[in-house]
Simulated scan of single mutants.
Amino acid sequence: MRRLGRLAVVLLMGLLGYGLGVAQPYVFRPPLVAGQDAITDAASRAAVVSVDDVGGRVLSIRPTGPARVLLVLYPGGFVRPQAYEWLGRALASRGVHTVIPEFPADLAVVDAGRAAALIARYAEGRPVVVGGHSLGGAMAAGYAADHPGDVAGLVLLASYPAQDKPVTGVSFTALSLLAEHDGVADPDAVRGGLERLPPGSRLVVVPGAVHSFFGRYGPQAGDGRPTVSRAEAEAVVVAAVGGYLDAIR
């Protein structure tokens, strides 16, 4: 009996250790650090980057001069905010102030209304665009649907509005981006999501790209195989998002 008891304890400890090992990447998240693999050229180097506390930590990337528009960008599920710093830096040269909030467990669904506090803190009377990648995009679309008077635009990266949260009856159009070889977001669902976006909204397919090319967080399980470099895909993303934001007034 004692031997069986010891065996049970060993098995229990083994299962507990395995469970902790599996859960560790999701429970113990990497620190929020600015400046990781984000500076790509002189224009992006000139951005002012800080980690602020606005009801939780937020990565702020602002132009060195006056900002013209505020972009509140929700990260994808289990993705750290700094994975999108590259995009904020690239947009800063176009007068865009990008803020990327940190969510509990890196899941925007936990606090989808987080944009309200960020808009109150950073908008300063400027037009506000909300957006996000994957799960973060769906949550941002829900925020836009619930607060149409506070939002002047919506940017979705490999994402789409939920069936019960169409973004219709608003005064702005949206921009939706789809990676050609996305193996995580369903391409048909992204295309179908246009039906739940305002009339005149546009879908841009990023040739040769995959889901993880929207953020710098490395390869993602189940994703497709890219046929272009990350730099080539990022250039298309910046051109599309930047062009859309240039028209926001």
Rank of each mutant, 00 (worst) to 15 (best):
L73N: 02
P31R: 01
L156S: 05
G17E: 11
G125K: 12
Q36L: 14
R68P: 06
Y74A: 03
P207I: 00
V58Q: 02
R202I: 05
A38W: 09
A144G: 09
A231W: 09
A123T: 04
L178I: 05
G224M: 03
G224C: 04
G137E: 11
R29H: 08
G208E: 09
G192E: 07
I248S: 13
A145K: 05
G77H: 15
A221T: 07
A239K: 14
A92F: 07
Y143N: 00
Y160M: 10
A189T: 01
P226T: 09
G137C: 13
L118K: 03
S212D: 04
V128K: 08
G55S: 10
T64R: 15
L91Y: 00
G125F: 12
L203G: 08
R202D: 02
L203R: 08
A174M: 11
G193H: 13
V99Q: 06
T40Q: 11
G19W: 00
H211Y: 13
F78R: 15
R3D: 14
P75G: 11
R62P: 15
G95Y: 08
G131F: 02
A209I: 07
D150F: 05
V69Q: 11
E124G: 14
Y84I: 15
E234W: 06
T173G: 15
L71R: 06
G76A: 05
D52V: 06
G35D: 05
M139F: 00
D37A: 15
D182W: 07
G183V: 09
S159C: 13
R196W: 06
L20I: 12
A185E: 10
A8V: 06
D186M: 14
E180Q: 14
V151G: 01
T168L: 12
A116W: 08
L175P: 00
D106I: 04
A239E: 15
L59Y: 12
V205H: 06
P148A: 00
V190D: 06
A233Q: 06
T168S: 11
Q82L: 04
A43M: 01
A112R: 02
A123D: 08
G35E: 11
R225M: 02
V9C: 11
K165M: 13
P127T: 02
R57M: 08
G125E: 14
G17S: 08
A105M: 10
K165Q: 13
G17N: 09
A116G: 05
P25H: 04
L15P: 00
V204P: 12
D188F: 01
L70E: 04
I39P: 05
W86Q: 13
P63I: 01
M139E: 01
R225L: 14
Q24A: 15
V33H: 03
A115M: 07
R126L: 14
T40P: 08
L177G: 14
H133A: 02
G76K: 01
V79N: 03
P31E: 10
L118F: 03
Y160R: 09
V228L: 08
G192W: 04
V48P: 06
P226G: 06
R191P: 05
A117G: 11
